[in-house]
């Protein structure tokens, strides 16, 4: 059986990740344009922040080897039921984002709400259908009529 990971291990991974982000950002700043007669160029602030991020990531990394904390780290395993549900929710909203303009809110939102409610564990189908449609229409009307914000409707854009 695989040994569960501890928080210090997770901190080690986070430390390495922080160093990589800081290092990449610093490396990118070296190709920034140098301006004449500008005492503090566009590269200075990101460089300071990158170095500081690397420094504190390294401190976390070192700390993780000396801590007595033995708590189990939260898992990112795809076999975990919680992770599966969370990824399903993420997948549904990413799909909503990708189809936002083409399919439109009035068609997309009830479907997304219904799917999200199903993934969250709701099983009262009639209530779920009514709420998905009701919430969509109320939000759409509110943004359109009260706040004067037109959410894209895709093929139903003629309504505006």
């Amino acid at each position: 059986m695989k040994k569960p990971r501890t928080m210090p291990f997770a901190n080690r991974v986070a430390g390495v990740f922080g160093i990589l982000i800081g290092g990449t950002a610093y490396w990118m700043t070296t190709s920034f344009k140098q301006f004449i007669n500008v005492p503090v160029g566009p590269e200075v602030f990101p460089q300071i922040m990158s170095v500081a991020l690397i420094l504190f990531s390294a401190i976390l990394l070192v700390q993780s080897f000396f801590t007595k904390d033995r708590r189990r780290a939260p898992t990112l395993s795809l076999r975990d039921k919680g992770m599966q549900r969370m990824l399903m929710v993420l997948g549904i909203v990413v799909l909503m984002f990708l189809l936002w303009d083409t399919v439109g809110f009035l068609i997309l939102s009830p479907l997304v709400l219904f799917l999200l409610m199903t993934v969250s564990g709701a099983r009262n189908w009639a209530t779920m259908i009514i709420l998905s449609l009701g919430i969509t229409i109320v939000v759409w009307l509110l943004f359109w009529k009260v706040l004067v914000i037109e959410i894209p409707l895709g093929p139903l854009n003629f309504i505006y």
């Binding site: 909503m96 409610m117 969250s120 709701a122 709420l131």
Partner: peptide
């Protein structure tokens, strides 16, 4: 929660 969470997510994205 199973009704509230999806509603929060969709309203927040709007």
């Amino acid at each position: 929660k199973k009704i509230l969470l999806p509603s929060i997510l969709v309203i927040s994205l709007v």
